Computed example of a mutant assay.
Amino acid sequence: MLAVQGLCFILLMVGLVPYSESTDTGCDVWTLSDQDVCCNKCKPGNRLVTRCGKDPQLLCTPCEPKSYTTHPNSYFCLKCTQCIGPQFTLKPCNISSDTECGCKKGYRCGNKECSFCVTECGEGEEPTDQRSCRKCSQGTFNDEVHSMCKKWRKSCPEEHILVPKGNAFKDHECRSLDVESTKDPLNVVKKGETKFAISPVWTAGGMAGLGVLCIIISVVACVQAQNKTKKNLKTDIPEEVSEFSRNMIVEQEACSFHHPEQEQGGSSESISTQDSESKLIV
């Protein structure tokens, strides 16, 4: 008779205790109250059935499949989260913890629990409240992944100049002034101003080019002066002078930087002397 009663009790217990992912069931911490046992904390994954009773193992029962609880004194279990859309399952649900979801490539978790995913924004854009992305507006940039756009810098530290190269992906640049350029008053840049330092290489090249140009102009002017002198000399020499003597006089006078009348004796005296010499030879 006792054996039959024991068997019936076991069958009754099996029917009352639902399917569980864990065999560790019942109350974990309890206290005695009169002749009853009162549960203060259920075992992990167990929900509270009744607070006090005769048997501490019957005070708590495991959560049903696809449900869980993380509270030791909760009367109810929560439904496991389902990873949907761009989500994927990192860790499946069990009676003591919920499902852990992740987001596929191109998305990221929208909150700490990763209960939803949002589009991941790249450089040059920022996230919006609609879980999407938008490009950085004019005057702002973003050089990080999934962060807000920032404004371009407007000034630089001392001894630096601001180089306006900012766009949606990078900020304006600050470049250090060259030591030599700071000595030139034209290249001194006040804080907050946007100017460019003149390179010493370009300055030297410009001066050299200017010197060459001056030499070319001087040579052209000299050649023109010589041609004009030759023309005037040929016109002023009398016709009685022989062609050979005429050419000699022209060459001598053209190579001189003085006016023909400034030569010793003048052109007329030279012609007269040559004429006398011709007569003596004859």
Rank of each mutant, 00 (worst) to 15 (best):
C52K: 09
V201S: 08
A204Y: 04
S33M: 11
K170D: 06
R246D: 01
S199V: 01
S181V: 02
T229L: 04
R134S: 12
S67C: 01
P157I: 06
G139V: 05
N247H: 07
S276W: 12
I84R: 10
S181R: 07
P260L: 00
T194R: 12
L11F: 10
K183R: 04
C117T: 06
S97Q: 15
K154V: 15
S181G: 07
V250P: 13
A254S: 12
N227M: 14
H259A: 07
E144R: 13
Q87N: 07
Q57W: 12
Y68D: 05
V118N: 02
P18I: 03
P200R: 01
C60A: 06
H160Y: 09
K154E: 15
K230W: 00
I198E: 05
F244L: 12
S33G: 06
V179C: 13
K135A: 03
Y75G: 14
A3I: 10
K66Y: 05
I84L: 10
S267V: 13
V212W: 14
E239I: 02
L213R: 12
S20L: 04
N40G: 10
V163Q: 09
Y68A: 02
T61E: 02
M1W: 05
E239H: 03
S268C: 13
P200D: 03
E159L: 08
C109G: 14
E126F: 01
I237G: 02
S96A: 14
A208S: 07
C39Q: 05
S218A: 13
L177C: 12
E173V: 03
S147P: 08
G206V: 07
I198G: 04
C117A: 05
L2W: 08
K105I: 03
Y19R: 15
L48W: 15
Q5V: 10
